[in-house]
Design a protein around this nucleic acid. Structure first.
Lengths: 176, 176
DNA sequence: TATAACATGTAACAAGTTACATGATTTC
DNA sequence: GAAATCATGTAACTTGTTACATGTTATA
């Protein structure tokens, strides 16, 4: 999604080749931004180079496979700043995924729907405890972690309204 | 994303051809699930037919273009139920999009970051008022709408913590 | 010394979107 | 009767993922 911003941001910190960037993501960001795949990184780096936002050079160490190292150009940096400002400002609608399921929920007996949502709540609660117990996040990821926590809470709170409501409606029309 | 579930769910209500389903989505769901495109619908219908989850027949009305009407099969209905239960149960991590930006936020002067986040808050607040003012949602979309409202609130609440914090840090290290 | 794991990457496929095609019907 | 719009759909492109290739170092 914001892969452009992510790759630019990482490249900005340090010259890198694709494999290396994949490692950085996997080890340093494994929790929140785990979902960028190697080929995506390679493609993005190539694309950035074509657009003049990054430069590439070939390197070789010992007789390991040669590798293509990328570094940021000035216009790359400008683009990064531009994208960053736009992304920070913009409100990304919080989900929509999973919402489709909610729209069809009355295809299920209310009692079962309530049960399934309760299961979801369970999983969330565990996830929440994991977060609360974790060491407070350091600088860069603190904001994102905090935001995640707020949304986890919101999801739980919402379920605490929705589940009883479904249960009530299950008890109400038991004439089926 | 959940396009499979969406298309199955719509088809379950009524036999349809692709164009018609695109219209239903556009007119009935324009708010929350506006983001499925016509070719996606066509492709999904074809795929469902190949998998035996839907059946197709050709129809023609007057001398308008002939059209391919799909209808649900029994195994389609089972698949729908299976998918639905899984989706309702599962907690979809609330976002991650936009989070990349937050991770790089300290590339900006704290003061500017605070200003941009305040802008984001503005937009959210407007969106929130829109929701609060809207007519209460009817059955099917009520759950989803309610959930959205909770998350909108959560995002605003989080910003109300994050913005002052950034501002404080801007005032703190004004030695730059 | 055979097997596993590391380092570096590409090819082939899947999913979705934008842009277009084509004929009928309405509108000016 | 020309221009717009409706009705129905497909082709071509973009983006991202899974699965594979290829040589090198570590391990049993």
């Amino acid at each position: 999604m914001d892969y452009r911003l992510l790759v630019l941001g990482l490249l900005r910190m340090q010259d890198m080749h694709g494999y290396q960037m994949a490692e950085v993501v996997e080890t340093h960001f494994d929790d929140s931004v785990h979902d960028i795949k190697k080929p995506t990184i390679y493609d993005m780096l190539k694309k950035l180079a074509v657009e003049g936002l990054a430069e590439s050079r070939d390197e070789q160490e010992g007789n390991r496979p040669p590798r293509t190292v990328y570094s940021m150009t000035d216009s790359g940096d400008e683009e990064f700043m531009r994208l960053l400002k736009a992304s920070v400002t913009q409100y990304a609608p919080p989900h929509a995924y999973g919402d489709v399921a909610l729209m069809f929920v009355d295809a299920l007996p209310a009692r079962e729907a309530a049960r399934l949502l309760a299961e979801r709540r369970e999983a969330l609660e565990r996830s929440w405890e994991g977060h609360a117990g974790a060491d407070p996040h350091h600088g860069a990821t603190a904001l994102a972690a905090d935001r995640l926590a707020h949304h986890l809470r919101a999801e739980i709170d919402w379920l605490d309204v929705a589940i009883p409501r479904l249960q009530a409606s299950a008890d109400g029309d038991s004439d089926e």
